[in-house]
């Protein structure tokens, strides 16, 4: 067992957990933020994506204790951290079907727009390729990303 410090959505947390706990389970079971989802556990589906210092990161394979002072932003904190335009665009296009993948999709899009405020279609596909939507909402996800860009994108 270890005592691990995390900074999530601007707030410090100290959790007692297994030494090797991935960020995903630290967030879900210890910090109490369950918006970040488990889908595969091996960095293949993107459901668990969070921002670590602004970079879209698969939390299921990221050891929590490696993060130190890094700024972690989850879907719960995205609106206050520059990503509201994406969430609004997602609503405008009524993008979700079951909704389970969408937190990860939105966070991946936020990561993309933070590093590239005006991506091409190919760049969007490349950045989003790690996020599976089993319900097949890809057309709407892309449309929502474009709408968010038009409305000012995300704050870097």
């Amino acid at each position: 067992m270890a005592s691990i410090s995390l900074k999530v959505n601007g707030k410090p947390f100290r959790i007692e957990a297994e030494d090797d706990i991935p960020l995903l389970w630290a967030l879900r079971d210890h910090v109490g933020l369950v918006g970040t989802k488990y889908g595969c556990g091996i960095a293949q589906c993107g459901s668990c994506t969070v921002l670590v210092d602004g970079v879209a990161t698969r939390s299921c394979v990221m050891p929590a204790k490696s993060l130190g002072e890094a700024e972690i932003i989850t879907i719960e904190g995205l609106a206050e951290n520059g990503g509201k335009s994406l969430q609004e665009a997602w609503v405008e296009h009524d993008t979700p079907q079951c909704g389970y993948c969408q937190a990860g999709q939105i966070i991946s899009a936020a990561g993309l727009l933070k590093s590239n405020s005006n991506p091409t279609d190919e760049e969007i596909d490349a950045a989003m390729k790690g996020n599976i939507c089993r319900c097949g909402s890809y057309v709407r996800i892309k449309a929502a990303i474009k709408t968010a860009i038009m409305k000012g994108g995300v704050e870097a």
Partner: peptide, 23 residues
Amino acid sequence: TSPKNVDVYDIVVGKPLFGMDMK
């Protein structure tokens, strides 16, 4: 008509909605 999915707001802000989320 085309109203939005009634859970869309909760989905995009990451509210606990799913079985996996219930603690």
